[in-house]
Write a protein that binds this DNA or RNA. Structure first.
Lengths: 244, 244
DNA sequence: ACAATAGTGTCTGTGAGACATTATGCA
DNA sequence: TGCATAATGTCTCACAGACACTATTGT
């Protein structure tokens, strides 16, 4: 079954990034307008080919993060999302794309990269609306990335990564509400996160606000995983049978 | 920053499989003894290079599953685990390995494949013991695969995939106990799975056994995801602070 | 009858969800 | 004093966990 002259094929390797952040209480994703073919002019996730044959995958993801979003990735969450390699997804040949997920706190407008004529934050619901055309299979990658982020918020303390170095409990709640797309009771949420040891720890004095009682500030605690997980409100579409 | 003469590098693409099954109430993984260099003679996960440049990734995984384990993969669970591509992990050059996870019911001894001089089921705790040397970074891949399987059992009805077409509740419980490595109360487990609509449905009459009351048989129901998830017993090593 | 396993019933503590109440700032 | 938001308290219901008990087979 093995041909002595057979040699395994080689493929092109790309790294694409799903960079999520929170802006005005809505989940946003960083998209670039492609400046070169294929899909020139379409919106796409930032990314690119491996620089050289010995470049580390995570290093490549960090490099793209820096090149296309101007983010020094030192303390930034970066996690592999999956490999997307359907034949024909890229007209330039067989390309395997490794998708990485990044959770970023609120950031200024990014700088356009080398092969992107423009870049900017786009609300995720707009990016996934049927009217928006994304390059390659980036719609699928983005969908998977958001799903992963939703799941991570349940089982880890990653929500604090959306916030700045210090934050209020109300701000943390907004993260959950924006990513999950639900409304939560502030009082129950307050109790919940307070009772999870090591989730958040007090930091500094209260913050002054325009109106209302000044809230306390917190910093992320040492804990990274949540046992038991944060409970996401049950989707009402989870019924199987119903009786009149 | 872009050189007009620069062309992106190409890499070799491999597909490796973590095939898990249950034998005598213990979790086993399919390992092969490598017949060729590198790592000749070492134990490794079954897998191989892409056949040709246009082969679909999932198809390649199914092909390896068939070639190395003799499993017709029609109704078999196959899920992407991740990409492993550290430079230098393979002396033959830059190789990116896409790992796939398979959950299989109890199966006969597999047949040795073309590039594997021997193949067999190995208990996972033995495969991961410090004395066992696995090829490449397969120890890491296997660890990740088991972690994924443990998590899937919480949030999906995948446990039924470990069983045959029909099974008893006690058999289903053994799946959870073996994969999670814990003991569960049979009565509470019974109540729990019965109350989850669409998890398991009655199938056929009772099964005759050597001793004791014959158990009822069930088949997997229409539901695939579990909301809320199955609760895995809290690891006692989840303490942060303690007071005397 | 006894052994052995299947299946059911009961109690209790914990925690999520709903919502009232008090606290602390500013105009 | 009134307003707005933060923080705490109370109640109820559901469910996980512990375990007593009944049911159904074979010997």
């Amino acid at each position: 079954m093995i041909d002595d002259h057979w040699v395994p094929p080689k493929v092109l390797l790309a790294v694409d990034l799903v960079i999520l952040t929170l802006r005005v209480s809505r989940l946003h994703v960083l998209l670039v307008e492609r400046g070169i073919e294929p899909y020139q002019g379409s919106l796409a996730l930032p990314g690119g080919f491996l620089n050289h044959a010995e470049e580390d995958l995570l290093a490549a993801a960090h490099r793209e993060l820096s090149e296309e979003a101007g983010l020094t990735a030192d303390q930034l969450h970066l996690e592999q999302l999956g490999a997307y390699g359907t034949p024909g997804r890229d007209p330039r040949g067989r390309v395997i794309s490794l998708a990485y997920l990044t959770i970023a706190p609120r950031l200024p407008e990014p700088i356009a990269g080398t092969d992107a004529s423009d870049a900017g934050w786009v609300p995720t619901d707009l990016a996934l609306s049927p009217r928006t055309k994304l390059a390659f299979d980036h719609r699928q990658i983005l969908t998977d990335g958001i799903d992963r982020a939703r799941s991570k918020l349940e089982h880890s303390t990653l929500a604090t990564a959306f916030c700045g170095p210090t934050f209020t409990i109300a701000e943390l709640q907004q993260v959950y509400e924006a990513v999950w797309g639900v409304r939560l009771d502030p009082r129950n949420f307050y109790r919940k996160v307070q009772n999870v040891e090591g989730f958040i720890v007090p930091a500094g004095p209260t913050r002054k606000t325009d109106t209302g009682r000044p809230p306390r500030q917190f910093r992320q605690g040492p804990r990274t995983t949540l046992h038991p997980p944060m409970t996401r409100p049950t989707d009402p579409a989870d019924k199987e049978t119903a009786e009149p």
